[in-house]
Design a protein around this nucleic acid. Sequence first.
DNA 1: TTTT
DNA 2: TTTT
Lengths: 170, 170, 170, 170
Amino acid sequence: MMNRVILVGRLTKDPDLRYTPNGVAVASFTLAVNRPFTNQQGEREADFINCVVWRRPAENVANFLKKGNLAGVDGRVQTRSYEGQDGKRVYVTEVLAESVQFLEPKGQGQGTDRGSQQQPSRQGGQDFPFGNQNQRQNQNQNQNQGYTRVDEDPFAGGGQIDISDDDLPF
Amino acid sequence: MMNRVILVGRLTKDPDLRYTPNGVAVASFTLAVNRPFTNQQGEREADFINCVVWRRPAENVANFLKKGNLAGVDGRVQTRSYEGQDGKRVYVTEVLAESVQFLEPKGQGQGTDRGSQQQPSRQGGQDFPFGNQNQRQNQNQNQNQGYTRVDEDPFAGGGQIDISDDDLPF
Amino acid sequence: MMNRVILVGRLTKDPDLRYTPNGVAVASFTLAVNRPFTNQQGEREADFINCVVWRRPAENVANFLKKGNLAGVDGRVQTRSYEGQDGKRVYVTEVLAESVQFLEPKGQGQGTDRGSQQQPSRQGGQDFPFGNQNQRQNQNQNQNQGYTRVDEDPFAGGGQIDISDDDLPF
Amino acid sequence: MMNRVILVGRLTKDPDLRYTPNGVAVASFTLAVNRPFTNQQGEREADFINCVVWRRPAENVANFLKKGNLAGVDGRVQTRSYEGQDGKRVYVTEVLAESVQFLEPKGQGQGTDRGSQQQPSRQGGQDFPFGNQNQRQNQNQNQNQGYTRVDEDPFAGGGQIDISDDDLPF
DNA sequence: TTTT
DNA sequence: TTTT
């Protein structure tokens, strides 16, 4: 059983950061990835791929990626389902990002080249691009007082209870 | 812009083979890929990932893969949308398989280890596991008299015009 | 910066398990991966790709994979260099396996389908295929009394100090 | 059998473009890919991964990528061997790039975002970023009068007959 | 609507 | 509901 996805594309919007009831950060965003060929009308199309990222990388994504930025994702394809507004089951296929790379050049915007890894190095390796990460985490704790609960589909918009702590991938 | 997916999992059903109005083969199947971790209830879950494959590999898949067989897919994540039965747009994320590997051991069932590539080798390399491929192609032409037109979502079942020749990825 | 490799192939030999001076397990093995096309003589060739895996998955690999077994690797390409026997620098490119999948069917040999992950699930998820893992780890501790030090190229055979604890990737 | 590599990194030098005796273009270059973790001294290391690309994308690489440029590679791990200068066999592991993405922003340098694909689209899709590709190919034919023969290791420098037409992957 |  |  193997499941690996790698994407490089541009954010269609600013990422959406939320918190589960337990205060765990989840960011969702859509990557527009241009196809390597043209269609029968000679136009270059794109795939619009929904991505989800959890915990600290979620906050990095929210802080450093903006609409139009080039980003890379290394992750897994994930499927889940939830009760739609009309009572029927909605099936979702999306990419669970395990790491997100910021590919926007340093100068332009607040992008960074260092990216963001789900799992920091054993030696306490620092993947947050700059500043004091503990301090940031405290800030986030505080933010959590007023977090947005993740109780609807981060992509579908209007909906129902969707991502909860049970969707935590690890 | 990069877009690459690799999956190894088991078919949840026999593959579904159809032909476009122009006689191009499309097979669709779902791969159950077990997750590498257990959920909060200690259960091992799976992702059920819809895959599509075109042309000759589609026919190989239909001929050699059965429900429960282990298969590998190398392809791209693809999104498309179609008009749902209730008139609203349905968004689909699936894997476009560029090659499919048959990972079931030779003896058991009609599996093969050689797999199936979208693009044959320049030297006329033979990727169809055995027999005469031209003969097979003729057979398929004949089959086309009674093909199933691809005018509904190969996964959703009931629906509307969905995959057509316009969805041909190359 | 992204670096991802996925391989499915067969072990050319039984894996080689060693321990660093600090008692960390490293297994190395070579995967023969058949090419998807034939060469100009119409023969199907293979790539012989050296892989390294650390810690518990290394022990799983050593215990469950044998020459000829089909296995999948998800990892990174890694380069390193060491002083050759003739005093000149030898450059090595190999695959650092982050997870190894056992794709041999259950019955035949001692293979398992569950595979082996570098990073167990947060909930204490169990990736060792059967038996008591703590017990196993104790056994390994004991084995360490007589471990093979990793002080030569695990692939080249004859050589010099090569992998040490400094090569530990995380 | 599956074999897939995806890399994003920076060229350590300008690419090296050569032609086989039959006039087929081959470019080789090395990608420095920073590791996502720091070593035991707290330093961030990189892997230096040799890549080879054939035919038209080889020429695109040579024309549009320069030392320090960010590029993405989608390809396969390939091993080969050749007779070393001292008569012994040298084993090489490298990445055969099937497509190369130019990730340097448009303005800065002559980079392009469109990248370079080994296999153009069925509809005669245009992957060369601008200008007339047929004209370019004619130019290359002319260039071939004075091509550099590929008869030594494109990475090792000093050596022996190495890449020939026989190494053409498809 | 899910596989072993 | 899409990016450059």
